[in-house]
Simulated assay, not measured.
Amino acid sequence: MFNQDILNRFQNEETPFYYYDLNVLQQTLDACTNAANRYNFHVHYAMKANFNPTVISKIRQAGLGADCVSGNEVLKAAEVGFDPSKIVFAGVGKSDKEINQALDLDIFSFNVESLQELGVINSLAGVKGKKAKVAIRINPNVDAHTHHNITTGLEENKFGINQWELNDCADALRQSPNLELIGIHFHIGSQITDLNVFKSLCVKVNELHQWFEERGFNLKVLNVGGGFGVDYHHPDTNTIPDFEGYFKVFDQFLERKPAQEIHFELGRALVAQSGSLISRVLYVKNGIKKNFLILDAGMTELMRPMLYQAYHKIENISKGDVAESNKYDVVGPICESTDCFGKEVELPASERNDLIAIRTAGAYGEVMASGYNLREKVKSVYS
């Protein structure tokens, strides 16, 4: 990814910054849309993964919809040109203000996560004389087998309506004249690389689809969420996720009726590999038991390693294939002991001002940046 021309360019840029390879982004989008179109599947981009204006403009141009989890994400999606008929609004805690804004835009659907929320949307839509389209997010109690902080489909999680609430949910829908049930919605977690997990999800979707059909609800949409993972360890040799294999699972194991739409909400899989956090070595501290590389980027620029103990490949792109190497704890400048990107990372013998790339940072990187310690907002550079 980092040829000499790019390295020369980086030398003149103030660090830290996010570098987005727009060619990788386009290749990923092409692979996804080509595979999805083969099965007539509908893909919404999960805005929470990255809402960098240049990145989401490329995604909109690829024809994807937008999956939003806040009112401001809904407004941003509309602002950059996503068709409201392709915007879905999820989130376990939608405020009245956010719901009203989405109603005014006539978005495609609210993914509803509680019985009380059904009543609130019905009431607010009634005031506006509108009928809100809703999909019921059901907690399927399917284990995604990922980090517990990014698992969302178990009964212990806060998301979705539990299956034992479905009879009450059906009654509420029948008594809500300002709601139109268009489908059911699921999302079981993030960074899922075992496709068997999605087979288990299909079995549960089929079961719950039948449950609603038996009670007289005609479902136009089956929304199976996202969560498809990427290869953080091999960003150069496994850059594009296997979208064909992913979508094929749902084509084979999901039971759908003619004209029924299958919707997906992909985020990380579309943008992660296109982004790297570029930083510079401020200081090298060599100790008896530990060597430290202190970077000018920290947890304020990339939170994932500190929040999830997530792995990102770390490279010294100034040194290339230097034979001599050391092991370093790669840390940032933030006044917190948890401000560490990786421990005992084997890198070429490194020096002050070397450029460090933290790879596969295009998802949940820039969007989670903060101003803690009065840090400046991290900037972006594009290929």
Score class of each variant (00 low, 15 high):
M1W: 09
Q4R: 10
F10S: 00
Q11G: 00
N12T: 04
F17Q: 02
Y19A: 01
Y19H: 07
Y19C: 01
Y20P: 06
D21M: 06
D21S: 05
D21C: 07
Q27H: 05
Q27W: 01
A31M: 07
A49C: 08
F51T: 00
P53E: 07
T54P: 04
I56Q: 04
K58D: 01
I59D: 02
G63Y: 00
G63I: 01
G65W: 11
E73I: 02
E73D: 04
E73P: 01
L75T: 07
E79F: 09
G91I: 03
G93D: 14
S95N: 03
S95R: 04
D96Q: 11
N100S: 12
Q101W: 09
Q101N: 10
A102I: 05
L105M: 09
F110K: 09
E113V: 08
E113H: 08
L115Q: 10
I121V: 06
L124S: 04
G126K: 14
V127F: 03
G129T: 09
K131I: 14
A135P: 00
I138Q: 02
T151K: 03
T151V: 04
T152D: 06
T152R: 06
G153R: 07
E156D: 13
C169D: 08
A172Q: 15
L173D: 11
S176M: 06
L179Y: 13
L181F: 04
H187V: 05
L195Q: 13
L195T: 15
N196R: 12
K199G: 10
K204H: 07
E207L: 14
E213M: 11
R215Q: 12
G229Q: 03
G229R: 09
Y232T: 14
P235N: 06
P235H: 08
T239Y: 02
T239Q: 05
P241G: 02
D242Q: 08
F243R: 07
F243M: 03
K248T: 15
K248V: 05
F250M: 03
F264I: 02
F264Y: 01
E265D: 08
E265Q: 07
R268D: 12
A269P: 14
I278V: 15
S279M: 09
I288L: 12
K290S: 14
N291Q: 11
F292T: 13
F292I: 13
L293G: 10
L295I: 12
G298W: 06
T300W: 08
E301R: 10
E301Y: 04
R304Q: 15
L307M: 12
Y308H: 13
Q309F: 12
S318F: 04
E324M: 12
S325N: 10
N326F: 11
I334L: 15
T338I: 14
D339Y: 10
C340R: 08
E346M: 12
P348D: 09
A349Q: 12
A349T: 15
E351V: 00
N353A: 06
I356K: 07
I356A: 02
A357G: 00
R359C: 10
T360W: 05
A361N: 10
A361P: 04
A363H: 13
Y364D: 09
G365Y: 06
G365H: 09
E366Q: 14
L374K: 15
R375I: 05
R375K: 15
